[in-house]
Amino acid sequence: MKKLFLITVVSLLLITPRARAQFAGTGTTTVSVTVAAEAAIRVDTSTTSLTTTGTIFNDYTGTTSFTYKVRTTASTGSGSITLKVTSDFSPSNGPSVGSPPTGGDKLAYTCTVSAPGTACSGPLTSSISSETNVAGFGANAHSTMAGNSGSTAWTLTNDPLYETGAYSATVRYTISAT
């Protein structure tokens, strides 16, 4: 039995192909890639100035443009673009998203997004505590290689209680895809 076992082991060692690749006049390799759902966004308007026309407390308005790329899974995928005010207006005594001096004061926006995105049904009120919708994507959504365009049009209440001066807030855009 021991001899038989030894003979079997030696035979296997002799007939087992070498692990290293063999040399030949030609060689073939398979290039493989797994393409996953992805999304990316670029805000093209780094600073959006909100301005008003007239001096009769018309709301401040402005537009932020962005470019997005998206790829969602064919049958079950989806995606979205959202925004959130990550830093409220400062300094104090001016407009505020989180603590407006007058109830009803708000930083609202409407959305414009090219296909395959579906723009939000605005106007929506921005928030410092939660993400709010800008655009949605269904299954098998594909932007162009260069990216597709979108924008949010802002409206900020012009409350007489605001002290005069310059105020700024930070808004973060987030895109996701599955």
């Binding site: 006049g25 030609t26 060689g27 073939t28 390799t29 398979t30 290039v31 493989s32 890639v33 797994t34 393409v35 996953a36 759902a37 992805e38 790329k69 998206v70 790829r71 969602t72 899974t73 064919a74 995928g77 098998n140 594909h142 932007s143 162009t144 290689m145």
Partner: peptide, 15 residues
């Protein structure tokens, strides 16, 4: 972004 999601493969021959 136009690529569908999934796994794709091509074969190359070296000579």
């Amino acid at each position: 972004p136009q690529f569908q999601t999934g796994a794709f493969a091509a074969s190359l021959m070296f000579t």
